[in-house]
Design a protein around this nucleic acid. Structure first.
Lengths: 153, 153
DNA sequence: TTGACCATGTCAGTATCCTGACATACTGTT
DNA sequence: AACAGTATGTCAGGATACTGACATGGTCAA
């Protein structure tokens, strides 16, 4: 075998697929999808964020994010003014019910992630996180804009 | 900050999203989806494989795989008998055109992966691959069945 | 042989996400 | 002030993947 690079791409896809599956399973009792959880999580971290910024932070288009936000609005987990005070961006924020739902979800998500990282040493986890971060950096074209993506997980 | 675990999950999602994006961009000139490439790749590695097995190896359902296979059949990249000689499984295989398309795609995919892993040492790449493999193992419930998923990337 | 069990292929319906397009509001340059 | 450029929200349409269900074919135990 000449190069091992292909293995990394496949294992990356495999790990993310499996993690997504387990997280969806864990969140199912709460009637939350993984994307919705990501949205709520980012909303707690950055209250008043716009839908477009939410979309960038959760790796979906702003169109998809607005559909998702509408569902969360209908369920009373998120609130957003009908009109912006200044500019076009409509600042979204969690409601009290949204905070409660996120708290419940966070426990389940943390449990899955802890399971995923069990059996690894602290330095192993650091190496993994740094390796993945290096991949992201290498795949980014515009480094300037990328700096806006603050880790919120 | 108490625990770093959440960071790993987020960066994992970020890396996979970005890799997927770059691969889709790279494959676009060939009119191939990343899922279609994965399908062709696995078909070369395991000729005569069933659609259900293809689905497991590419992390989609067998229903989705059959739709994808139909498209590849229509384009003449894959061939599959109308009836099985024994059992229900219909063995699929690449056509000559399919091999050509895969060869072209492989070059593009390898280039993206090489870019992703650039700037990392050999031991960094090994650590990354081993860390991801450990995550997969920890998230699997049935280890016996999982052994069927041979890396084919 | 009979029956339960499992894997595969397939059909139907649904959900989610995407691309393309347009109008609106700010920003910076001329 | 006027203009191009950028960012946001939104509407419309299509592509892709999923869940649920059913029939078929093979396997294994009673």
């Amino acid at each position: 075998m000449v190069n091992y690079q292909p293995q990394v791409g496949y294992v990356l896809k495999q790990a993310q697929s499996l993690l997504r599956l387990r997280l969806e399973e864990a969140l199912k009792p709460l009637e939350l999808t993984l994307s919705q959880y990501s949205c709520l999580h980012l909303l707690r971290r950055e209250p008043g964020i716009s839908a477009a910024a939410l979309a960038r932070g959760t790796f979906v288009t702003r169109q998809s994010m607005n559909v998702m936000l509408q569902a969360l609005l209908d369920r009373g987990l998120v609130e957003r003014p009908a009109r912006a005070e200044s500019g076009r961006a409509l600042p979204a924020a969690l409601t009290a019910a949204g905070v409660d739902a996120l708290d419940s979800a966070q426990t389940l998500v943390d449990s899955v992630e802890t399971r995923m990282l069990s059996g690894m040493t602290e330095s192993d986890r650091d190496a993994l996180a740094r390796g993945l971060a290096a991949c992201v950096e290498a795949l980014e074209v515009t480094v300037t804009h990328a700096a806006g993506g603050q880790g919120f997980w």
